[in-house]
Simulated assay, not measured.
Amino acid sequence: MDFRQITAAERTAQMFPLTAYAFTPSPWPAEDEERYRGRMQFNETALNLVAEEGGQALASVVGYRMRQNVRGLVHGMAGVASVASHPSARRRGLVRGLLERLLRQMREEGSAVSALYPFRPSFYARFGFVGIPRHRTATFAPEGLAHLIRAELPGEVERRPMADGFEAYESLTRRLLEERHGFSVFDDNQTAGFRDDKVWLAVARSEGEVVGAVRYHIAEYGGDLVAEDLLTTGPLGRALLLQFFARHVDQVARVTVTVGTDEVPELWGTDLAVTTEGRVNHPRKGGPMVRALDMPALSGTPVGAGDVTIEIPDDEFVGGVWRLSSEDGRLAVAKGSNPAATLTVGGFSALLYGVLDPVEVFTRGLGELTAEAISPLTTLFPRRMPYLFSDF
């Protein structure tokens, strides 16, 4: 078995048959392959690995060089995607070998964290990944926002094709990368591929500043307006975009928009009837998973007060005994001794990302903690729900 890195130009021949069979209806039409080949210009910076036998690719994995905000500090992030294998090659450890190589190389290149969308969470938990919240969808009739049509808001919304509004949209996502916990973006090469997406873009501005944006399409007259992530810098941006949705009252029956766990759509209007749903099922709609890849690189992360030593056993990337302390509200990571807690990679990552507290880490079987470790771990890593933007 040969594990090797391939170029974007090789992906169509080597990887497309694997990923198309794994993730799309098949047999697939010829235009699907041509469409895939046409997008490879936007994958020049991706790390593409395959496992070959007799010249045939039997398994694949792709690592996207991304950036992610973790508690206010932006890190290099390995976005893992296109994990696929030929049916005859499954259960042979090929995907494991590819993932280990990919994470090792991307850590060496500067990725401090990693994220993916799993087909089965328990499989990736063995690689140290832990779940974080999946996005919610809010579905409502636009007449429920009628009060906003009459509101005089200090701003306006412009509707543009994605290609025309691309710069405004990209600038907003780069701003949110610096401000929003869990937010992630692709590198410039990959991001350029979204410019020509066949969607509408609504951009909210106030005094010339972009304060919100949402990509969307309309399924049919009298049907649904289907929006992607509701991206805003605050309440004004949200109000402007919701007002824009309200103005579709005689055109569409329902609006569906993607929101984070910090949004409360039932409070958007007094008479608004809304269904907010977070659906997770496997293999199609797995909630995202994350893990830490480099402990020293986490130094400087905004944290609460506390000082505790932990051990993370049996991990190539973050294994060892580490003293974690707060220095002027920033995490300091140093080699330590006499640990007060033993955490799996997933257990530590759950604390870092703010999705579990120390007691939950214990009850989930992700660590063993002494009583004196619970308080400093709780104050160092207060609960905080991340929003993982970017599907990959």
Rank of each mutant, 00 (worst) to 15 (best):
R150N: 13
R159I: 13
F186W: 12
G208P: 01
F140H: 03
D197S: 09
R215W: 00
V185E: 10
T139C: 10
G155S: 07
Q190N: 09
N189T: 13
G193E: 05
T232P: 08
G155M: 10
G223K: 02
L176W: 01
E228Y: 14
F194V: 11
G212K: 07
T191A: 15
T191Y: 09
H147N: 11
D224F: 10
E228F: 14
Y169P: 00
V214N: 03
V185P: 02
H217I: 00
P154K: 08
K198P: 10
V210I: 14
F186C: 11
G155Y: 09
W200R: 04
A146V: 11
F244V: 00
T232Y: 08
G234R: 04
F140E: 05
F244D: 14
Y221G: 11
V203P: 05
H217Y: 12
G237K: 03
E167R: 12
H217F: 13
G222P: 02
D188P: 00
F245K: 01
V210L: 02
D187W: 01
F140C: 04
D188W: 10
E228C: 03
Y169E: 07
F140N: 04
E167Q: 11
G234I: 08
V210W: 01
R238S: 08
E207Q: 15
Y216D: 09
L177V: 03
P235A: 11
L241W: 05
P161M: 03
R175D: 10
E207S: 14
A151I: 06
A141H: 13
F245C: 02
D187Q: 03
A168L: 13
E167I: 00
R247W: 02
E207L: 08
L177P: 06
R175H: 14
R159F: 08
P154R: 11
L153C: 02
A246M: 03
V157H: 06
P142A: 08
Q190F: 10
N189M: 00
G237P: 04
V210A: 04
I149W: 04
Y216T: 10
F140T: 03
E209W: 02
L225P: 00
T173M: 11
E178C: 07
G155C: 09
V185T: 13
A246E: 02
G223A: 10
V211R: 06
L236V: 07
Q190H: 11
E167K: 08
V157C: 10
V210S: 07
S171V: 00
E143Q: 12
P161Y: 03
P161S: 04
L177W: 03
E207R: 15
D187V: 02
R247A: 10
T139Y: 06
E228S: 14
Q243I: 00
S184K: 01
A227K: 08
S206I: 09
D187G: 11
D229T: 12
G237Q: 03
T139M: 11
F183H: 15
L176Y: 01
R238L: 12
W200I: 01
L240P: 05
G193H: 05
L148H: 05
D188F: 08
W200Y: 12
Y169L: 12
V157E: 09
L201F: 06
E156K: 13
